[in-house]
Amino acid sequence: MWKLKGENISKSFGGVTALKEVNFGIKEGEIVGLIGPNGAGKTTLFNVVAGVYRPDKGSIYLDDENVTNLNSHQLCRKGIARTFQIPRPFPELTCLENIMVSIIGREEKIHNSNEKLKEAKKFLKFVDLDNYGNILAKNLNLIQKKRLEVARALATNPKIMLLDEVFAGLNNTEIRDAVKLIERMKNEFEITQFWIEHVMGVIMEIAERIIVLDNGEKISEGKPIEVARDPKVIEAYLGDTDV
């Protein structure tokens, strides 16, 4: 029933416990938000799910298949794509090449170069970067870099997208554009989305369900309204100065 499921995931770095026995599940087609104050362990959970770190304990299932021990590139080929909190497009490659890498990394290869080019342009267009194809990614501004990264992740043809703070550093107009992008991602590509936000803002309007982490532990889960009213969540956020 779960598209993606994590069971009792624990991860520590030296003395720091970043995740403590975290359980979560995401259904096909859902948009789930993951929130929590600074250092709660959100990014770490993504890194564990995406195969960057192995969990110390616990397992991850994708369509009921245990994928805990797979590497990043294997997980990507199984359909998990992600963006990074601080965007990491390939700086010395052009925007088009950035996306091309995703396309040639796919399991199902496109052999014809024109087809490949068409496919890459499709994703550039999707994030409104079609005029930037030949520009090196390092010359983009932050928002463009984020968009390029979303396009690059989308170009791997994922089933699930892990988005790490796509809204951070954006102003209101830009956030509205980003929201549109996320809705189109769901509608046009039918992608299940697992989505980190640091602040409780827009995410409360879009997400169907919210999971809250604090100090590496899941402290709350449910509909956005329920979570926002949860005393434990309010308390966790009280100590957090950024809200």
């Binding site: 590497n71 990043s72 990491r88 390939f90 700086p91 490659l93 890498v101 990394g105």
Partner: peptide, 22 residues
Amino acid sequence: DHGLKFKSVLNDELAASSIGID
């Protein structure tokens, strides 16, 4: 395409593996 993979690994290994490059 191999060359592009080479360059992606040179640019950012973590990002490259996140989009399916071994």
